[in-house]
């Protein structure tokens, strides 16, 4: 028995998501009285650092099969490593790639799959987890008694704290199943932007901004805060911003540490996608905007005056702290 965790990398680099997944696995393994083992695919940064997050060992798989992300090959590799290590629990961070791997892996491993998980297991026998449902308007406890279980948690929902130490890194060996072929023809990453699912801080704006030409101040505020930028549904529907920025019930659900909503009224569909944010600030010129009921801090005022002042105040704060 052991807990296995998929350590996703982005062009060879690891992000907070990967460390969060490692620690999630280590804490779950501790509850089960067993060890947590990482699986890394392709050429990456140093893997021994995962010891600081509680892993006892990382198995690295190199070679041409893992040069580019492939959901089936990833699932097949995880299956093979799980079998070699008699792992009965597999942890996957719910990134866009993770969500593409987990269902396939669950079929290959005949596993019970619990996705959208927001906390560490409340029990390990049977494995019971709290997950978000109805776009964060509710939670439900799920359990699975299958011999193998896969847990897919929402990135940034459990957090991560760095410890110390390093772990053993070994080169693994797997024989992959023959799986369907999908060819990647082009990868287009937006440079210098923080992807929303992993952003710890998010600055978001809505129709109150009046037009796409006014987003400069939103981007400036995001820049001083090291934040990702997001928008409401109408803004994305009107084409003011790309729909990769649309947060809410039918867009991306996010749960950053800080969410600043500017000129967004706070319709129930929008709140559904952002209400898990740890701290919410609403800036709106309408004192009756529903967002003020969902926010921790609020400013009633004209975004065009408040936002530049706030950017300046944060810039000054950062310069002196």
């Amino acid at each position: 028995m052991s807990v296995l965790v998929y350590l996703e990398n982005w062009e060879g680099k690891f992000k907070k998501n990967s460390f969060e997944a490692a620690q999630y696995a280590a804490k779950t393994a501790e509850m089960m009285g067993t060890e947590a083992i990482g699986v890394s695919l392709g050429e990456t940064d140093d893997l021994a650092v995962f010891g600081a997050y509680g892993l006892s060992k990382v198995i690295s798989l190199g070679g041409a099969d893992f040069g580019q992300f492939d959901n089936y090959k990833t699932a097949s590799a995880l299956k093979s490593i799980a079998e070699q290590n008699s792992a009965d629990t597999l942890i996957i961070s719910g990134t866009l790639n993770g969500k593409s791997v987990a269902p396939i892996a669950s079929i290959m491993l005949n596993a019970g799959l619990i996705t959208n998980v927001t906390e560490l297991p409340s029990s390990v026998s049977p494995l019971t987890l709290k997950r978000s449902v109805f776009s964060s308007k509710g939670f439900v406890n799920y359990s699975s008694e299958e011999a193998t279980k896969i847990v897919c948690f929402i990135p940034n929902s459990v957090g991560v704290t760095e410890g110390s130490g390093s772990c053993e890194v070994v080169q693994g060996n797997v024989s992959l199943d023959a799986t369907p072929t999908t060819t990647i023809n082009e990868v287009d990453r937006i440079k210098g932007k923080i992807p929303l699912p992993e952003a710890e801080r998010v600055v978001s704006a809505g129709r109150g901004l009046k037009g796409p030409e006014n987003w400069g101040m939103i981007e400036e505020l995001a820049e001083v805060l090291d934040a990702g930028t997001a928008c409401s549904k109408p803004v994305s529907d009107m084409g003011w911003r790309p729909h990769t920025e649309h947060v809410g019930q039918t867009g991306i659900a996010i749960n950053p540490d800080l969410y600043i909503a500017i000129g967004i009224s706070g319709a129930i569909q929008h709140l559904a996608g952002v209400s898990s944010s740890k701290v919410i600030v609403a800036i709106n010129n309408d004192a009756e905007a529903p967002f003020f009921k969902a926010a921790d801090y609020g400013i009633i005022g004209d975004a065009f005056e408040v936002v530049p002042k706030l950017t300046e105040a944060i810039r000054n704060f950062k310069a002196t702290n």
Partner: peptide
């Protein structure tokens, strides 16, 4: 959609 961008694929 991928984290931080998009990918063109064929199958």
């Amino acid at each position: 959609e991928i984290d931080g961008g998009k990918e063109k694929l064929s199958a």
